[in-house]
Lab assay of single mutants.
Amino acid sequence: MGFKLLSKLLVYLTASIMAIASPLAFSVDSSGEYPTVSEIPVGEVRLYQIADGVWSHIATQSFDGAVYPSNGLIVRDGDELLLIDTAWGAKNTAALLAEIEKQIGLPVTRAVSTHFHDDRVGGVDVLRAAGVATYASPSTRRLAEVEGNEIPTHSLEGLSSSGDAVRFGPVELFYPGAAHSTDNLIVYVPSASVLYGGCAIYELSRTSAGNVADADLAEWPTSIERIQQHYPEAQFVIPGHGLPGGLDLLKHTTNVVKAHTNRSVVE
Rank of each mutant, 00 (worst) to 15 (best):
T207H: 06
P35A: 09
E44Y: 04
A136V: 10
T93Y: 00
A21C: 15
E145Y: 12
M1S: 13
W55T: 12
G163K: 11
S7N: 02
G158V: 05
V121I: 14
Y48W: 08
G158C: 08
A94N: 12
R263H: 04
A192W: 09
S27D: 09
S161W: 06
V266G: 12
A213C: 10
L106G: 09
S30H: 09
D52R: 08
D118H: 10
T261L: 14
V237L: 04
Q235W: 05
V37R: 09
A129H: 14
S113N: 15
D216W: 07
V67H: 15
I238P: 01
A144V: 12
V126P: 05
V28M: 13
V187R: 00
G197M: 03
H180M: 00
P176F: 01
P41C: 14
G123C: 01
L106D: 06
R110S: 05
R167D: 05
D52A: 05
G177Q: 00
G158K: 13
V265G: 12
R110V: 08
N211E: 10
R141H: 03
L97Y: 02
V194P: 00
T114V: 00
E267D: 09
Y48P: 08
L24H: 03
S264D: 08
L24C: 06
N184T: 11
P138W: 15
Y34R: 11
D79G: 08
T254I: 04
G65I: 14
E80I: 15
F174W: 04
L97R: 02
S62Q: 13
T14R: 06
A165I: 12
V166M: 05
A95T: 06
D52I: 03
L81W: 01
K258M: 13
L6G: 08
Y68D: 08
V265I: 03
V126N: 04
D183N: 02
A66F: 13
S191C: 04
G65Y: 07
A259C: 08
A51N: 15
T261D: 11
L24W: 10
G210R: 09
P23A: 11
D216T: 09
P221L: 13
A111N: 15
T261G: 08
T153C: 14
F3K: 10
S70I: 15
L143C: 09
N255F: 04
E267V: 13
A192L: 04
A15C: 06
N92E: 10
I227L: 05
G72R: 00
A133T: 10
L247F: 02
G65M: 13
L5P: 02
G53A: 11
P35M: 07
H241I: 01
L249T: 09
T254A: 08
G2A: 13
T182Y: 08
Y12C: 06
P41T: 08
L13T: 12
L127M: 06
A90P: 10
T14A: 13
D77H: 04
V257G: 06
K251W: 04
L247G: 11
A133Q: 09
A111G: 15
L204N: 13
